Amino acid sequence: MGKYEPLAQFLSASQAEEQPLQFSEVEQMLGKPLPSSAFQYREWWANQNRSQSKAWMDAGWQVWSVDLGGERVVFRRTHHPRPQGRPTSGESAPSGPWASPAIRIPEGRLGPAAMKIIENYAEEHGCDQAEAAAALLDRAGLNHRSALFDRLDALAMKQDSVSSAELIRQDRDRDGR
């Protein structure tokens, strides 16, 4: 078992799409202190091919944000890792929305740069290109969705709140779509 495997197991078991943790909680999971560089350098938390990041990335997660001063990290799910191996006689094949990708992009519809981004993401995260495309699309829309939900929450406090459909129309018009 690798040094960061307990963190990977925790994240794998999580049903959340986002998992905020205090550094002290990570240390508690690991049963040992984080290295001092984790408290000093944001790069320690980078989603690169290092032992710590490989653990959470193999589990289908990425570090989304790090607050060194507050000693907090936020992980976001990037994909649901595929089960290792084939089902044994007592197991059934995976089912549900993650069993097979639903994205179908006709060949030639994406330019070379977009295809390279998808290929790199798939290789980096150990998933197929359809899963990579889905994760990239989801990440691209995440900031927009977060801002929309923040606005909806803020408006819910007001007596004269605007409908969510109206907010979406305003966003569309503001973005020139």
Rank of each mutant, 00 (worst) to 15 (best):
K116H: 11
Y41A: 14
P81I: 03
F75P: 05
G111P: 02
P83M: 04
A133H: 02
Q28T: 15
E71I: 08
M1N: 00
D153N: 12
M157F: 03
K54S: 04
G126N: 06
K3A: 02
I168R: 02
G60R: 14
E119R: 07
Q62N: 07
A59P: 00
E119M: 08
E27Q: 09
H80Y: 06
N47Y: 12
A154S: 15
R50W: 12
D58E: 00
D175H: 07
G96V: 02
D58T: 00
Q40L: 13
D150R: 11
V63C: 02
E27I: 02
Q159R: 13
S36H: 11
R169S: 15
E131A: 14
S92T: 14
S164M: 08
A46M: 11
S14L: 12
Q15S: 12
Q48P: 12
A16E: 05
A8F: 04
E107G: 08
S53E: 02
P20A: 01
Y41L: 14
Q84F: 05
P101S: 14
W45V: 03
E124N: 15
R174K: 10
F39I: 11
K158Y: 07
E123F: 12
L21Q: 06
A114T: 10
S24H: 10
A102D: 01
Q28A: 13
D138W: 04
L136W: 05
M157R: 12
W61N: 04
V73K: 02
V63Q: 00
Q28M: 13
W56D: 11
P106Q: 02
N49V: 12
K3G: 00
A99W: 02
R82C: 03
W45P: 05
R72M: 04
L142P: 00
R42T: 05
E43Q: 09
N120H: 10
N47S: 12
F10L: 11
A8G: 05
A135M: 07
G141Q: 02
R177L: 15
S51W: 00
W44G: 01
I105V: 08
E124G: 14
Q9H: 10
A16K: 03
W61F: 11
A130R: 04
G126M: 06
E18R: 06
L167A: 03
S92M: 15
L11Y: 03
N143C: 03
R172L: 14
V73Y: 06
Q19K: 01
N49L: 14
A132C: 07
S37C: 14
R42A: 10
Y4H: 05
I105K: 00
Y41V: 14
H80W: 02
P106Y: 03
K32G: 15
L7Q: 05
S161L: 09
D171V: 12
L11W: 04
P94W: 01
A8M: 08
E27D: 08
